[in-house]
Design a protein around this nucleic acid. Structure first.
Ligand SMILES: [Zn+2]
Ligand SMILES: [Zn+2]
Ligand SMILES: [Zn+2]
Ligand SMILES: [Zn+2]
Ligand SMILES: [Zn+2]
Length: 344
DNA sequence: AAGGTGTAGGGAAAAGCCCGGG
DNA sequence: ACCCGGGCTTTTCCCTACACCT
């Protein structure tokens, strides 16, 4: 059962902080990032792009790399009324319903990341991005906090940081009124209330809860479908009672930290907490030696050495917290579950 | 009581991108 | 691609606290 209410990011209340500053969200705003798996070594071959005026051709295959990861059971078949015109970026495969939108998008990779770092060879689409990047190498951090002295490379990041001192929480949930200091945190939060579908297909406007839902969905616009998916796992997403979780009456917390006074319900929590003060990191990686305060972090870290750079579902790109070392294949299946549910 | 496991909340780094001025 | 800088937004990641279960 779906929840009776439909929380929305855009609250009708006038005093609500505006999440969207401009009048409308252009379709390309919800772009789904292709294959962020290997941004580093993704060597994008430079080709000149020439968008012919009035070019309205459908895409010619080439779906191979960007849809990598969808190979097996997880593609769902269903028919859908075709959308008349597709404007397709031949660079990244993203599709648009209007030529204008595509042209706007094209600016993003006009001449394929022309700026490259002389130190690490990383490439950037924008000169300003490179400028900022260079500060990483130079160590320059021009913006420092007047309260705690912490320094930042980017001014905007300092501004966000300041909210931790001021307590400013410009983004608040229209359902529970909880405030958030960062917009993305509110967006994350909303999904825990219920059925938000913030990602929409740029071609047909169909909406999806996860970014990856759009990725998969795009296959139908390419005339490519495949078989259905069933599996017996319960949807992790279905929280039976999404709102009941508002934290009220805190439990007794007999264990308090001698350093900072923070209180905890269990001695084990205090013990873990104390590592913050002592700097103790008992869990170290046998491969690279990196140390962690908690076992879960180490487990999470080990994925890097298994060659799994991305710690999120390759179908939906949802990031998974796998402190607890859940098996990859389990995680990779759960979004499929949701997806299949949605379809019928 | 203790410890494992999964999730929400929050602090950031880095990059994307728009815009206005020279 | 004019080039640069300011500024805001987005993406991604990391860590902490805690509820729930065994
Ligand atoms: Zn599946
Ligand atoms: Zn593109
Ligand atoms: Zn570099
Ligand atoms: Zn500070
Ligand atoms: Zn809420």
């Amino acid at each position: 059962m779906e929840s009776p209410f439909k929380p929305s990011l855009l609250s009708p209340a006038d005093d609500q902080q505006q999440l969207v500053r401009k009048e409308e969200l252009p379709p390309e705003q919800q772009k789904w990032s292709l294959d962020q798996e290997d941004q580093e070594d993704q060597e994008v071959q430079t080709q000149l792009l020439h968008i012919k005026e009035e070019q309205e051709e459908l895409w010619t295959s080439q779906e191979g790399e960007q849809l990598q990861g969808l190979e097996e059971a997880d593609i769902t078949k269903f028919t859908f009324t075709p959308v008349p015109k597709l404007f397709n970026c031949f660079k990244c495969g993203q599709m648009f319903g209007y030529k204008k939108t595509l042209l706007t998008h094209m600016r993003a990779h006009a001449a394929e990341k022309p700026f490259s770092c002389s130190v690490c060879e990383k490439r950037f689409s924008w000169s300003d991005s490179l400028q900022k990047h260079m500060k990483i190498h130079s160590g320059e951090k021009p913006f420092s906090c007047s309260v705690c002295g912490k320094s930042f490379i980017q001014k905007g990041n300092l501004q966000v940081h300041m909210r931790t001192h001021t307590g400013e929480k410009p983004y608040s949930c229209s359902v529970c009124l909880k405030g958030f200091s960062q917009r993305s945190h509110l967006i994350d939060h909303m999904r825990c209330h219920t059925g938000e579908k913030p990602f929409s297909c740029s071609v047909c406007e169909r909406q999806f809860r996860f970014r990856g839902g759009v990725v998969r969905h795009m296959k139908i616009h390419m005339g490519e479908t495949s078989h259905e998916c069933h599996s017996g796992l319960n949807s992790v997403e279905s929280k039976d009672d999404p709102v009941s979780d508002v934290r009220c009456n805190p439990p007794d917390k007999p264990f308090s930290c001698p350093e900072c006074g923070k209180k905890f319900t269990k001695s084990g929590f205090l013990e873990t907490h104390m590592r913050i003060h002592t700097g103790e990191k008992p869990f170290s990686c046998s491969v690279c030696g990196k140390k962690y305060t908690r076992k879960g972090y180490l487990i999470q870290h080990m994925a890097v050495h298994r060659g799994e750079k991305r710690q999120s579902c390759r179908i939906c790109n949802k990031r998974f917290v796998w402190h607890s070392g859940v098996e990859l294949r389990v995680m990779f299946h759960f979004p499929c579950e949701i997806y299949c549910e949605k379809l019928n």
